[in-house]
């Protein structure tokens, strides 16, 4: 039995206050906007669920949503196997370890908008190394005009930026495996694949789920990098939910619809996180 010590609540009070100011109050403002309509002058009318219905019925919303899901699926499909692969091939002892770790951590230290800018310049066909290089190879590459090129660039950029996170988490899982396991596997005549399947993967599964969860949430909320790189273009081909939301709220000043949309967006992320979390914890206890 735990002894209840009520003093502890006083300790968390400041945090609760902070959360209230930074999250709950803005969130309530958004809720407020989402159920009202205004024609300016701070005059509001009750709109009920009208905005929500409008958002859910709009093709534009579903198109952006589709792009988001596609984007998350693609980067997970690339970053997770790639991250595992790199982690498996990193040295486990010796001078190579710190070198690899620092090298891997570098992209994670760069601010999001700088990443966008780097790739924006990198991919330009007039002065960028990548753009010029591909052009010189005779490839018709232009992320400003070609939707596929734009997607490829954004995906490349995300992979470059975030694969390290998967690598570091997997690596942490891998180094916790005692040597005896690898020795036993050798004695048992296990193949390289069997070692991965029965020793390394089981030891990585927890950190891997955390990596997937983090990468999914992050990629689903992606905003800064594509905004800096393509601004959502060409056309609307790289307009993700978050970019659309900003266009709606600031570009078109459609506050009600934007508020409804952000609440839907928020609920989706909440739901997804909950699903991941449940899967993750259940997966652990079922075998624990």
């Amino acid at each position: 039995m735990k002894t209840w010590n009520n003093k502890a609540w006083f300790m968390v009070l400041p945090v609760l206050a902070l959360v209230a100011f930074s999250a709950v109050i803005p969130l309530m403002t958004v809720v407020n906007y989402s159920v009202q309509d205004t024609f300016g002058n701070n005059v509001f009318f009750w709109a009920g669920t009208e905005w929500f219905e409008e958002v859910l019925a709009s093709d534009r919303f579903w198109a952006a949503m589709g792009r988001n899901l596609a984007f998350s699926a693609i980067i997970l499909a690339i970053e997770v196997p790639l991250g595992i692969f790199i982690a498996l091939n990193m040295p486990r002892r010796g001078w190579g370890v710190p070198v690899c770790l620092v090298f891997m951590a570098l992209p994670l230290l760069i601010p999001f908008n700088v990443v966008g800018t780097i790739w924006q310049v990198f991919g330009r066909i007039d002065i960028g190394l990548l753009g010029r290089g591909l052009y010189a190879l005779g490839l018709d590459y232009n992320y400003v005009n070609d939707p596929i090129d734009a997607w490829v660039t954004i995906i490349l950029m995300d992979v470059w930026h975030w694969t390290s996170l998967v690598v570091l988490l997997c690596y942490a899982g891998l180094v916790s495996i005692p040597d005896a396991y690898y020795q036993a596997a050798k004695i048992d005549g296990a193949s390289r694949w069997a070692v991965f399947r029965y020793i390394q993967l089981p030891k990585m599964h927890r950190v891997l789920l955390i990596a997937i969860l983090l990468r999914f949430m992050d990629s689903f909320m992606i905003y800064t990098e594509p905004f800096v790189l393509t601004g959502g273009g060409p056309g609307n081909t790289t307009t993700f939910l978050s970019i659309d939301l900003v266009k709606l709220a600031i570009g078109e000043f459609n506050l009600g619809e934007a508020a409804a949309m952000s609440i839907i967006y928020f609920l989706i992320i909440l739901l997804m996180s909950w699903v991941f979390y449940t899967v993750m914890t259940n997966y652990g206890t079922e075998k624990g």
Partner: peptide, 29 residues
């Protein structure tokens, strides 16, 4: 290499393949 020597070895601390059943563990080698 070890695999080619046809040797069995038991270690100080138990090494089991967590995700396999006891049966599959024994069948593994």
């Amino acid at each position: 290499p070890t695999e080619a020597r046809n040797i069995a070895q038991v270690f100080q601390f138990p090494v089991v393949y967590d995700t396999m059943t006891v049966y599959d563990n024994l069948a593994f080698p």
